[in-house]
């Protein structure tokens, strides 16, 4: 039980330490398919946010009523309901973006990150932690989507959220808005993420070592004083 961990930490871990994309490498289908512009990435991230938080809340609330044998089917029913709600709402409110995202909105059902959170977390924790976890995880997903979408839109079109950045003379990197660009950018971002995490770990080790040396010196100095 996670009673000893604060709900805040449950949320933060999804953003960075256990980021669903950069660390768990989950949800790759929407990640690669709809990040060809920042706005598509953000809408997809928000849709996933709504579905994940909603289903985590329901699964956690009803966890005592859900029989173990049919839990996966029930999770999928819950998730699919939220996805359908998102699908029709987007079609009504933002038809242009719905057209771009196309088949990938219904495919949120198949996003393994969402089912994974139900099975691994929401079904075992109480509502408060389950919702915080879902917020963190889908927040992390949104950040990753935004990072990928921004890089691809800036290089591929020379704009961000449709705002021209470089003027009309910009030479677009066509490959970036095509599927290979998704794989390339994701690979490079993973590379950067791992490099940064490793650097940070090395730095923390160094700091810890320095602290220990300092502490030892302190003790020694204390000992000398005492002896003197």
């Amino acid at each position: 039980m996670a009673t000893d961990v604060s709900a805040y930490e449950e949320m933060i871990k999804g953003l960075w330490r256990d980021n669903p994309v950069f660390v768990q490498v989950l949800g790759m289908c929407p990640m690669l398919a709809v990040t060809n512009s920042a706005i598509n990435a953000v809408v997809m991230g928000l849709a996933t946010f709504f579905v994940l938080v909603g289903s985590s809340f329901l699964v956690s609330s009803f966890k005592t009523f859900i029989p173990k044998q049919v839990r996966i089917s029930l999770y999928i029913i819950i998730i699919a309901t939220f996805v359908t709600v998102v699908d029709y709402s987007l079609l009504a409110i933002l038809p242009a973006i719905h057209k771009e995202l196309g088949a990938f909105i219904p495919l949120i059902v198949a996003n393994c990150m969402i089912l994974g959170r139900q099975e691994a977390f929401a079904s075992k924790h109480n509502v408060k932690y389950a919702v915080m976890d879902a917020v963190g995880m889908s927040g992390g997903f949104l950040i990753a989507m935004l990072a990928l979408g921004s890089v691809r839109e800036i290089l591929g079109v020379g704009a961000l959220f449709g705002v021209d950045l470089f003027g009309s003379n910009f030479e677009p990197w066509v490959i970036m808005i095509l599927p290979p660009g998704g794989f390339l950018t994701l690979g490079l971002l993973l590379l950067f993420f791992n490099w940064f995490t490793e650097r940070r770990r090395q730095f923390l080790i160094k700091v810890a070592d320095a602290d220990r040396v300092l502490a030892v010196e302190k003790v020694d100095a204390q000992g000398v004083k005492d002896n003197g």
């Binding site: 009523f65 859900i66 029989p67 044998q69 049919v70 089917s73 029930l74 029913i77 819950i78 699919a80 309901t81």
Partner: peptide, 12 residues
Amino acid sequence: LVMSMAIAGFIS
């Protein structure tokens, strides 16, 4: 088991 599935399906 069947009942729980049916109820969930109905609500959905």
